[in-house]
Amino acid sequence: MQTTETHIVPSLIAPIRLQEYGVGIFNAALTKSALKKALKKKLIMVNDVVATTATYIKGGECISLSISEETISKKKLILQLDVLFEDDYLAVIHKPAGILVSGNSFKTIANALVSNIKKSNRSDTTKPQPVHRLDFETTGILLIGKTSSSIRALNKLFKNKAIKKTYFAITIGEMERRGDITHDIDDKPSQSRYTVCETVTSSRFGTLNLVQLEPQTGRRHQLRKHLSQLGHPILGDKVYGIEPLILNGKGLYLHAYSLRFVHPFTNEELCLKDELPKRFRKIFESIEQL
């Protein structure tokens, strides 16, 4: 048996590709990748014509997605999340370590959002969706879209680099006080800016640094790779760490600390923070002053 979701496109200022406009409008295909898969499987129609990844919409069209009910999960993931900010358009949560943001697994942040985020009162309310990713082991702030229009708007802000992200990490070894790391990642230009906030001596690691990080690009594992390439891997990094200095059992000391951006609907300048975990404060007692 099939279920069909429909969406009427409002008037648009300019034509836009369906695979860009359609992110977030269907509960059965919320993400970019899910939408592309649905298009390739010919599950989406625009005015009763099968849509493709090359389809543009101009406004006023009826878009429908038909999918087998067997593919839609009936189970709900019950996982309590800390909600740091929420309004009718978006939310911000704390992502704990050891859980995927999204993907094929049942236990993901994406699957836990419905039981933690309030349903929007806006007309285009949809299933809440993360609009960016954090690594499995990384903790910290994660931005969620609650309506179709806000998911598209937040994706556009990330694409235009209009959201400033700040991380904190604990790194190993004596470092220059500040600098830019510009090593290519996967043959693509990449840049990370760092500032050493505090340093302590360690009997095992020699020197540990509390480092503020501002990624200027968004490559996969960028901060972890850049710090490792600099010769100062993140404490607890089993993938990019230096073999004799890998800390086991304590997790990765990388935390997404803040997001700064202009709210795409209220025009309010937001600076949202997720305070550093206690395990950071055990090593650096002055963190309370940040």
Rank of each mutant, 00 (worst) to 15 (best):
H7K: 12
I8Q: 13
V9P: 08
P10I: 05
L12Q: 11
R17G: 01
Q19G: 07
E20P: 02
E20R: 14
Y21Q: 11
I25C: 03
F26C: 00
N27V: 01
A28G: 08
K32R: 15
A34S: 05
K37N: 05
A38I: 14
L39D: 04
K40T: 07
K42E: 06
L43D: 03
M45G: 05
A51V: 08
A51H: 08
T53W: 03
G59Q: 13
C62G: 08
L65K: 03
S66E: 14
K76H: 15
L79E: 08
L79W: 03
L81V: 04
F85A: 04
D87Q: 04
D87H: 04
Y89I: 02
A97L: 01
S102W: 03
S105G: 12
S105A: 14
F106V: 05
F106K: 02
T108G: 08
I109S: 00
N111I: 01
A112E: 09
N116Y: 11
I117K: 05
K118I: 04
K119D: 13
S120Q: 11
S123E: 12
T126Q: 06
E137W: 00
E137S: 06
T138Q: 10
I141V: 13
L143I: 13
R152H: 06
N155L: 04
K159V: 03
N160Y: 02
N160K: 05
T166L: 07
T166V: 15
T166I: 15
F168P: 08
T171V: 05
M175A: 14
R177S: 14
R177L: 06
R178H: 10
I181D: 04
T182F: 09
I185T: 00
D186P: 08
D186W: 10
D186V: 09
P189W: 02
S192V: 09
T195S: 03
T195V: 10
E198W: 05
T199W: 05
V200N: 10
S202P: 00
S202E: 02
S203D: 15
G206R: 00
N209K: 03
L210Q: 00
V211C: 03
L213W: 10
E214H: 13
T217Q: 01
T217D: 00
T217H: 01
R219P: 14
R219W: 10
R220C: 01
Q222A: 07
L227D: 02
G231Q: 03
L235N: 07
K238P: 14
N248G: 06
Y253F: 15
Y253N: 08
Y257M: 07
Y257S: 05
L259Y: 06
R260M: 09
R260Y: 07
V262Q: 10
H263R: 12
F265K: 04
C271G: 05
E275G: 11
K278V: 15
K282M: 10
K282G: 12
S286F: 14
E288Q: 12
Q289T: 07
L290T: 06
